[in-house]
Amino acid sequence: MRFVLTKIGLLLLTLWAAVTLNFLLPRLMPGSPADAALAKLAQNGPVSPATKAAIEAQLGVPTGSMFDQYLQYLGNVATFDFGVSYTFFPQPVAGLVAAALPWTLVLVGLVTIIAFIFGTLLGVLAAWKRGTWLDTLPTVGGTFASAFPYFWTALLLLFFLGYVAGWFPTSGAYGRGTTPEFSAAFLLDAIYHAILPATTILITSLGGWILGMRSTMINTLGDDYVTFAEANGLKPRTVAIRYAARNAILPNLTSFGLALGGVVGGSLLVERVFAYPGVGYLLYTAVTNQDFPLMQALFLIITISVLLANFIVDILYGILDPRTRR
């Protein structure tokens, strides 16, 4: 299938660009982040030559040509060698990221998909029942909720439901004293801890999906094929779902892919508020400690995740739209 091949090619190109951006960022900045990082690291004890080389490759030290540095950097990325964190010295960055990533993927990924599906359904309903309370309520509510900063919604929920009411735990992804394991008890505990952060992301991102789907659906409702379907006496439900909504979902999928970055960004702040041990909280820790190797690696992994998610959305689009299959 040519469509998939084109998309894979584009994905590889975008991945390369993201990796290169990650290489250029510290080098474009004033001052030398690498020197700062090495100085900071030296406080923890002697720096091994291997660590030094890795950090220099990552953050750029004026040794060797830019091109040599670039090649070495690419090599490091390909082998997941992101150097050593000095916040959590001497743990390697790769291990820290690998430990944090699943928490974020499950929390943010799952909630975003749920929010998109739920918001889309509400948007369909709002457009179909235009002018009734089924339209007004989600539209007005969505407009306000989507203007809330993620971290503020998080703070409010944390304060009122966590501290004041005491219904939910106020930090972490699982109870203190337990260790992650595959057991029903731990799973329930993890879900219990995830409810507040998940609700935050749901509330704040839902509005955008509702409004987006509503407006595209209102457009498709005016299309000729909808009028013709009505003229042919199709059942209203068929017209709404298989004709109007089915076409309206397509542009919305594209905006879903593009809005994903924003949702992920907001979720990072939510993790910070709830001290949820995902990549967002780790990024916050890295930034406040000027742990550049960790920070760079996290940025790269977040970007790559979003790029991959976009790729999946693109493929899904291709499956849903027969016009791209030709």
Binding site: T14, V264, V287
Partner: peptide
């Protein structure tokens, strides 16, 4: 087209955080 799409899909807030951390 490629550059704009790149800026569209790269999550903005993490990028801001990284740049702000350097600055």
């Amino acid at each position: 087209n490629f550059i704009v799409n790149l800026f569209l899909v790269i999550p903005a807030l993490p990028l801001m955080i990284v740049i702000a951390a350097y600055l």
